[in-house]
Design a protein around this nucleic acid. Structure first.
Lengths: 230, 230
DNA sequence: TAGATGAGTTAGTCAAGTCTAACTCTGAGC
DNA sequence: GCTCAGAGTTAGACTTGACTAACTCATCTA
């Protein structure tokens, strides 16, 4: 909007971090509020407010005091490039280097700002054009449209329903290790055998085996329902 | 020396850049002067002076006004880690991703600060423990000793002498492309057939072919003499 | 509908790293 | 040995992005 922006000056590391996080929140359909962004980025709400103002001035977000932000078209393009880099790097780390999926988010956070486009493209070719990150989130296209993640938490299913894991919450390292060890990864088909509404646990059937998972897992696993054709 | 340093706080990107460049200059046996560092890093001599003072205070370099700097043991360790990262990344970019050696220095400059140790180790395993960067410079060991680059410019050879290319100056993209296209890469055996002291050109024999190179190349190719046993 | 409460914002400060402009040192040449 | 050009340094200002402390707004409850 405001044309005070230098043509294509690269965004600062900090701006990239803010934009990418805003993007991720918008991609799951939530409102973006200051405190949440501040907490995720490990800064104070005051710093976040200040950055929102700067980003708004540069035409990257729409911002009105006390009512949150949203990405402008330009902001969405910029943010999606960062998220794209992040997710391709994660894929690279797991698929080529064999690093555990519970650690790649952190590593990608550091690497995503310093990855030249040409290098990213070469990595994508090597990977054969992956569609999702290891945790199941879609890799945004080059064009930079918001890539919306479908799926709802296992928590929302009732006993008897079938579903496929789409993506898993990647913020908790311990949990991720847990999930991997139990085969709870994107693409896995499962059935909710039983729901215990008192303690929040779910009994899941996966292939021939049965698994009882607590509420934390039931909230971290995002699935799409599958109609049972059997 | 001065223990005002926080134990193992990671170095800033800026410090890493300065230290790495000082390391490279020391590794070819030259004195480190302010202007040269400033020019290479694209900052003013004033900024460089200021940084030298900071680094000295932190025990990373020995610094006395008007007489240059040298790395302390701690500085050498820190710098060699950065250079190590840089050179392993270059190898990765050329050998795994197939990027031309004339571009990898620039890319590695950006990536070297954001590469977690675990990722670097995984890349090294994938590469099979390379000894040198694509331009022929030694990859420092984990221990962080200064890795001295041997070799002298082709310019220093006289007609008739045999030599093996050890490393090539990596600062000029155009020149690097040129060299690669002519097979003037590390490991190549050559003989100086003729030296023209008037225009500075050299005629080189490589295998069955003959190549006339100008002074710029004769200064950018670093070789070790080989005794002619024939 | 008036507080109260908590989220969000503003004001002022700080540190890192850069710059320009002015100053100082070193050493090469006479 | 002296001078002076150029390399190096100091001083002071600026930018970015963070912080704390104090303020303001929105909303939920009574």
């Amino acid at each position: 909007m405001v044309d005070s922006m230098a043509k294509n000056a690269p965004l600062s590391r900090s701006r990239e971090d803010y934009l990418a996080h805003i993007y991720r929140i918008q991609a799951v359909g939530h409102n973006v509020n200051t405190g949440e962004v501040a907490q995720h980025l490990g800064v104070t709400p005051a710093s976040t407010s200040a950055m929102f103002k700067r980003l708004a001035q540069e035409g990257l977000v729409n911002y009105k005091s006390y009512s949150g932000v949203s990405l402008t078209e330009e902001g969405e393009r910029a943010a999606s490039h960062v998220v794209r880099r992040h997710r391709v790097i994660e894929r690279f780390l797991t698929d080529i280097l064999g690093i555990g999926w519970e650690r790649v988010d952190e590593f990608a956070n550091r690497m995503e700002h310093a990855m030249p486009d040409e290098v990213l493209e070469a990595i994508e070719r090597l990977l054969g054009g992956p569609d999702t990150c290891p945790h199941g989130y879609p890799i945004p296209s080059e064009e930079g449209k918001l890539a919306v993640a479908t799926g709802q938490p296992v928590e929302a299913l009732v006993a008897g329903e079938w579903a496929v894991i789409r993506h898993v919450d990647e913020s908790d390292t311990e949990l991720l290790r847990h999930l991997r060890e139990r085969g709870l990864v994107p693409g896995t088909l499962l059935q909710v055998a039983e729901t215990n509404l008192i303690d929040g646990t779910r009994t899941l059937r996966i292939g021939d085996s049965t698994l009882v998972v607590g509420q934390r897992i039931a909230r971290a696993l995002f699935v799409d329902r599958v109609v049972d054709d059997a």
